[in-house]
Computed example of a mutant assay.
Amino acid sequence: MHHLIHHETVDKALEILADQYCRSTLLCFQEATEDALPIRDLATRVVPGERKNETVVRLHHSTLPRLADAGLIEYDSRSSTVRYHGDQDIEELLATLTDCFAGEEQFCEVGP
Rank of each mutant, 00 (worst) to 15 (best):
F101E: 11
G86H: 09
I73W: 03
C28K: 05
A43N: 08
S80T: 12
R78F: 08
L93R: 12
K52F: 05
T9G: 04
I16Y: 07
G86Y: 10
C100P: 00
E74H: 14
E54Y: 15
E54F: 11
D99T: 13
E34S: 07
A43L: 01
G86D: 08
H6K: 13
T63D: 04
D35M: 03
L97P: 00
Y84L: 00
E92Y: 04
D76N: 14
E92D: 12
A68Q: 14
R45I: 00
E91H: 12
R66W: 06
H85P: 02
L97C: 03
T33I: 03
D87T: 03
H6D: 15
T81Y: 08
S24K: 09
E54S: 07
T96K: 13
E91W: 08
H85V: 06
E104Q: 11
V57Q: 10
A95N: 14
T33V: 02
L37Y: 09
H7K: 15
A43R: 05
H85L: 11
Y21I: 01
Q20K: 13
S24Q: 09
L67M: 07
H3E: 12
P65H: 11
G49W: 03
L42Y: 10
H6C: 09
H61P: 00
F29N: 04
D76T: 07
C100H: 15
I16L: 14
L64H: 08
V82H: 05
V57T: 12
L17H: 05
E50A: 11
V46M: 02
E109T: 15
Y75A: 09
G86F: 08
E92F: 00
N53E: 14
R78E: 15
A13Q: 13
D99H: 13
I90Q: 05
F29E: 03
S79P: 01
H85M: 11
A36K: 11
R51A: 10
T98M: 04
V57I: 13
Q88R: 15
V82Y: 04
A68H: 13
T81F: 07
R40K: 15
L26K: 02
R40T: 12
T9K: 13
S77Q: 11
Y75W: 02
F101T: 12
E34C: 03
L59I: 06
T81S: 12
H61L: 07
V46H: 02
K12Q: 15
P65K: 10
S62T: 14
K12Y: 14
H3L: 10
S77L: 01
N53P: 00
E34V: 05
P38A: 10
E109I: 10
D89P: 00
R83N: 10
F107C: 04
Q106K: 10
